[in-house]
């Protein structure tokens, strides 16, 4: 399924990047600058710490932000795993053959220097993100 993909980060829907990041920075994580993604309409910041998975905090800007409903439904929570892949299109094709459904066509992401991302959903795995190398 994702044989050649490399795990990249865990996405966490948060109400406030500041509030959530504070708890992690006290635990030794380093917080990277907050960026606004106009396509996803969210604020994003990464938290990194040696030996720990990279964490992506995703904060809604308003009700149209994709994470708004997740927060409303289940509160602050991890909601996707991201994998880095060589060809996002090849990976989409492979995953669709396994019944993953594409949420939207790949788009450039400000948080990754405009590298392409996309999200896919499977009823048995939940949401995953692909990030093209």
């Amino acid at each position: 399924m994702l044989e050649n993909a490399i795990f990249h980060h865990v996405g966490i829907a948060v109400k406030s990047i500041t509030d959530t990041a504070l708890l992690y920075t006290e635990a030794g994580y380093r917080m990277l600058p907050v960026v606004y993604d106009p396509i996803q309409n969210v604020n994003i910041s990464f938290l990194e710490k040696n030996g720990s998975p990279l964490l992506e905090l995703v904060e809604p800007v308003d009700k149209t932000s994709p994470v708004y409903n997740i927060l409303k439904k289940v509160g602050v929570s991890a909601y996707h795993f991201c994998y880095e892949v060589v060809s996002i299109q090849d990976c989409i094709t492979a995953l669709e053959s396994k019944d993953f459904r594409l949420l939207q066509e790949p788009v450039p992401a400000v948080a990754f220097n405009n590298r392409k991302i996309c999200f896919l959903y499977h009823i048995d795995t939940g949401l995953i993100e692909l990030l093209e190398k």
């Binding site: 994709p66 708004y68 409903n69 409303k72 459904r101 949420l103």
Partner: peptide, 27 residues
């Protein structure tokens, strides 16, 4: 609450209920 993620969850539920399959292009 009808956003891109719930849209796909709705699609999966529709496919299961009607025993049909949609293409990504359709969705």
């Amino acid at each position: 609450g009808w956003d891109s993620l719930t849209h796909i969850q709705i699609i999966v539920a529709i496919e299961q209920y009607f025993k049909i399959k949609f293409t990504s292009k359709e969705i």
